[in-house]
Each structure stands twice: as structure tokens, then as C-alpha cells.
């Protein structure tokens, strides 16, 4: 990556989870610190400069939700991914209400975590633009119109939301679970076939007849809009 490595704090007490998360993130060139206790996690997150915090809700000592509350009061904009053993939609909404940026249920795969880390690290560096562009594809969030190579493309409301999500994360992989959670605001595993069907619909409208395909399927992970983002 660039000359400055991104720093991530992993607040998690289970050593086997910590081990694979640390190995995986370090292999992707992040600098990783670990805090196995709530109080320590709060102190480290508040005192040191991290680009992102991965926070387990079930920490010994001060619980994860309390750590999150304290942290939000001091650093409102630091991206936080919450890890939990509960999967209910209500729990997810509660976690997000308390200021978590994303919510991942155990057991999770490393590729799922990695995709979410990338999505959040990138969001921090770019403000929400009203016009999203990927090559010759243009999406206007205000007039809610989509054009490719100047040609207007008609999309339904859901298709528009899906394309917007893919374009906001252009150059990065997004998993099916991320799409279900952020576009549908649901968290059901079995919604993933709905996602595949919808992506195919959007693909037909956006890619067919334009020669160059913009929406790629990433095997075993999900989808990616456009080619890999240039490393900074």
C-alpha cells in the first residue's frame, strides 16, 4: 500500500479469533493492535490514533456497548465495526443506533470482515458526492437518474439503490451479506438469491450492449463495480 500503513485496533478477548483476524489483516498490510479487555480497549481507542476499530460486544470488564458509547463521545467519526454472536435485525439496528458503522455476526469469514474494513476505510476519506461516476457510468443521487455513455438507463427504486451501493464502493469487493444489510436493511442469509437476481437485472440494464462490463462477480465473495481501486 502507501507509505503510511492504516492502523486498526482489534478489541476481542477470544485468542483464536484474534489470531486469525490479526494474521489476515497484517497480510493485507494493516498495522494491528489488540485489546482483550473492555477498559483497555476504551483507553487505547481514545488515546491512540486508529483508522478503524473492530469491537467485540462481549468483552470482559467494560462491555463492548459501553466502550462504544465512551468512544463515540470522544471520537465521533472513527469507523467502528461491531462483532457479536447475535444476529437479529433488532440487535443490528440497536448496535448501529449506538454509533457502530457496521455489524458483523459470528461466525464470520475473513473475506467478509476484510470487505467491510475496506468499505469503511474508504468511506472515511471521501465525502458523499451527489454524482457518482465509474468510467462512463454516471449516477445522480439528487435527480435519481442513471446514464451510461450519455444514454439514459431506467431503473426501479430497488435497482437504483443497489447500483448506488455498488458505485459507492467502486473498485472494492462487496459481499452479498453487505448488500442485503445495506440495500434491503435486512439480515437474512436466504435473501442472497434475491441479491443475485437483482444484480443480474441491473447488469442487463447497465452492462448489456456497452461492450465493457462494469459489474464483476467475485467468486466466493460477491460483486465488484469497476476495476480494482488504485492503491494510494
Amino acid at each position: 500500500m502507501g507509505c503510511l500503513r492504516m492502523r486498526i485496533l482489534v478489541a476481542e478477548d477470544d485468542s483464536s479469533v484474534v489470531s486469525f483476524v490479526r494474521k489476515g489483516l497484517e497480510a493485507e498490510n494493516y498495522a494491528v493492535d489488540v485489546a482483550p479487555e473492555g477498559e483497555e480497549a476504551r483507553f487505547m481507542a481514545e488515546e491512540y490514533d486508529y483508522d478503524l476499530v473492530i469491537l467485540d460486544l462481549n468483552l470482559p470488564g467494560m462491555g463492548g456497548l459501553d466502550v462504544l458509547k465512551h468512544l463515540r463521545a470522544k471520537k465521533p467519526s472513527i469507523p467502528v465495526i461491531v462483532l457479536t454472536a447475535r444476529s437479529g435485525v433488532e440487535d443490528r439496528v440497536k448496535g448501529l443506533d449506538l454509533g457502530a458503522d457496521d455489524y458483523l455476526t459470528k461466525p464470520f469469514s475473513f473475506s467478509e470482515l476484510s470487505a467491510r474494513v475496506r468499505a469503511l476505510l474508504r468511506r472515511g476519506s471521501r465525502p458523499a458526492e451527489s454524482v457518482l461516476k465509474v468510467e462512463d457510468l454516471e449516477l445522480n443521487r439528487v435527480s435519481r437518474t442513471v446514464r451510461r455513455g450519455g444514454k439514459k438507463i431506467e431503473l426501479t427504486q430497488k435497482e437504483f439503490a443497489l447500483l448506488e451501493y455498488l458505485m459507492r464502493h467502486a473498485g472494492r469487493r462487496v459481499t452479498r451479506a453487505m448488500i442485503v444489510e445495506h440495500v434491503w436493511n435486512l439480515s437474512f442469509d436466504s435473501m442472497t438469491n434475491v441479491v443475485d437476481v437483482y444484480v443480474n437485472y441491473v447488469r442487463k440494464k447497465v452492462d448489456e450492449g456497452f461492450g465493457h462490463r462494469l459489474i464483476r462477480t467475485v467468486r466466493g465473495v460477491g460483486y465488484q463495480m469497476g476495476s480494482d481501486e488504485a492503491e494510494e
Binding site: S87, G88, D189
Partner: peptide
Amino acid sequence: VVRLSRALRELAEADQS
């Protein structure tokens, strides 16, 4: 195993919904 554990959790949560 992961799929099974997720399905079981969903079932348990449905009971309290």
C-alpha cells in the same frame, strides 16, 4: 457448520420475536 449454527440461531430468535 457455520450455516447450521446460523440457522439454529435464527430459529431461537424467531421464538422470541
